[in-house]
Write a protein that binds this DNA or RNA. Sequence first.
DNA 1: CATTTCAGCGAACGACTGTTTACTGGATGA
DNA 2: TCATCCAGTAAACAGTCGTTCGCTGAAATG
Lengths: 197, 197
Amino acid sequence: MDAALRLLEHQSLSSLGLREIAREVGVAPAAFYRHFRDMADLGVALVEESFGSLRALVRALRTEAAGSEQVIDRTVEVIAGHVREHRAHFRFVARERHGGLPAVRAAIAGELALFAEDLAHDLARQPESEGWSAGDVLMLADLYVDHMVMTATAFLEVPEGDTGGEAAIARAAGRQLRVIRLGRMHWLDTEPPAAGA
Amino acid sequence: MDAALRLLEHQSLSSLGLREIAREVGVAPAAFYRHFRDMADLGVALVEESFGSLRALVRALRTEAAGSEQVIDRTVEVIAGHVREHRAHFRFVARERHGGLPAVRAAIAGELALFAEDLAHDLARQPESEGWSAGDVLMLADLYVDHMVMTATAFLEVPEGDTGGEAAIARAAGRQLRVIRLGRMHWLDTEPPAAGA
DNA sequence: CATTTCAGCGAACGACTGTTTACTGGATGA
DNA sequence: TCATCCAGTAAACAGTCGTTCGCTGAAATG
């Protein structure tokens, strides 16, 4: 899997050959079948590996429970750091999210949906979500997750060591999160605040 | 190019073979070189084709100049319709946006940047943007463009004829746009509203 | 009418692909 | 100690691949 991830930095999974991986590992082509049935099989395994480390990280971030202002910058920092340290995994996920192998696409979509669900659960128990319908909370969580994905892929497009470029993206992402937060706080402004139904 | 686009619905560009295209067209493999040097060359041509039709459409939408409330629903409708009618083009762009061919990735990134710039220019001349810095306007435009991309790819994941699924995505996207619009309208709330500088 | 341009042709090149087969040797566990 | 796994092996299979070559014929150009 490490070898595959190494090769996947510069190509997509569907163009990656079984023999190519074996060659990189230094192993006979047939040995591949001892571990995976398909290339798609390898793909979903890599998806699980990628989201595994991320899940632990988000759990850590969520328990920090800082003020809603600092939590924005902290979130962006955490994303930046995680992308920096797991570049290959993120590149793989970004590339295969809409890639050619349906099984891999489905696995990624499933992980992201779980992610949004978790986040929605967290958002729902915050005081800012009072008066929100469950559907609207999920809608907001999806917006946050989409923005997170966009931010992560933006970090990926920075040339690896360019700390200035990273900082620029982090600044923009933070301000965008603030726009969304402001929208969230005024979501119920136009509705009757406490009308009985 | 039509043949390539047809084949690209189920695979990515880097896994698509030159001979495969020739076979689909009903032509000798060598004929490919009469039109494109590379597969990457074909890729950037397809990118230009894809964004060409979209550009015209957005220009049309921008001149409609409706109330800021209806413009949201109208925008989502327009995206939905355009994705429905140019499914193959959108799928191609979504897939190759982070795909294996750098030239194609760069072409797509360039088109999206132009897009955001245009939108920023439009936003800047709206009364809601009074007091905004140029950087913040671009930041907002990027947020809108990212959301547009996310919405378009969400439409792509709907099984083609499923009008119910489309409607659900349209509803969610519209509400997300409303969140962003609310955030935009309260962006300057915490700053001194009319302090002389 | 003469000439040039140009999309397409068929054949051939070496190199690479996924998959199956029967076999090997070291570690694991009873 | 002996039997059982099991990761890895070499070899062979029929295909597919990108690319180059010189040639053809119709259309456009003058």
